[in-house]
Amino acid sequence: MMALPDAAGEALLEVEHLTMRFGGLVAVNELSFVARRREITAIIGPNGAGKTTVFNCLTGFYTPTVGRLALRHPRRTYFLERMDDFRIAQFAGVARTFQNIRLFPRMSVLENLIVAQHNTLMAASLFSVAGLFGLARYRHAERAAIERARYWLEKTGLTPFADDDAGSLPYGLQRRLEIVRAMCIEPVLLCLDEPAAGLNPRESAELNRLLLAIRAEHGIGVLLIEHDMSVVMGISDHIVVLDHGSLIADGTPDEVRSDPKVIRAYLGEEEDELPGDVAADFGRNHGEGQA
């Protein structure tokens, strides 16, 4: 979408005092955190903590009750809380995937990736008029779109399935396709809602590699909601922990892993004394994840 300055770790998304209420229910409460360019920021928390709601606010599907969501581009800042969902994707460059995969099931894998490049193609085809008359300008643009799609297909091993219906892919490949489809809009911020859900260990290791490659080669920020600790601890640079809509921890994987508040939230323990073996188990799991 635009040239990114090389400085890594520069603030990309600043969430300030984000609050989302549904009637009496406070799904997200006074949440503030920063996500940086070239970093994977994980958002974790027990079920119903409000993680998906944060994504829905970021991508314009919900209008936050309170809060500021500033997305910093090199030359301007977008305030996402005021923008329509499709404009956020189109202009601010925030792409997302969904907790329950949302592909275009009766379109081919390749078409899924081409639809994601709609706005570029639309401009190149002069709102399809040039395309209608088969002008060269549109043909070039379409070829470029196919090339971009091919790049992502090859990167994810989806090339042999390019002409199959997206809905006919196995689950793990559908997850991967949804991620690369989001990448095809050339986002500056990629929001992934539980991309490892339902994957087997091998697939989830492949996912890790893909996300690390995206971070390294495309210099964008990644927001990652995930329950699978091997993914979270293995690849994130920074973790934000939510519980009942509120921020309870924010730091590096190591800091978060040893945070007693996090352990308590995950184990649902109200008392201070945790059964020792359970706490140890929790820690060991995370340790394995990072290895």
Partner: peptide
């Protein structure tokens, strides 16, 4: 012809999943 153009593909995408369309900037 129009089925093969961005507009036509966007129509079909809309039929398949409107929310996904929005998330991709359509």
């Amino acid at each position: 012809r129009i089925r093969r153009l961005p507009v036509g593909r966007a129509w079909e995408a809309l039929r398949e999943d409107e929310i996904a369309c929005r998330s991709l900037g359509l």
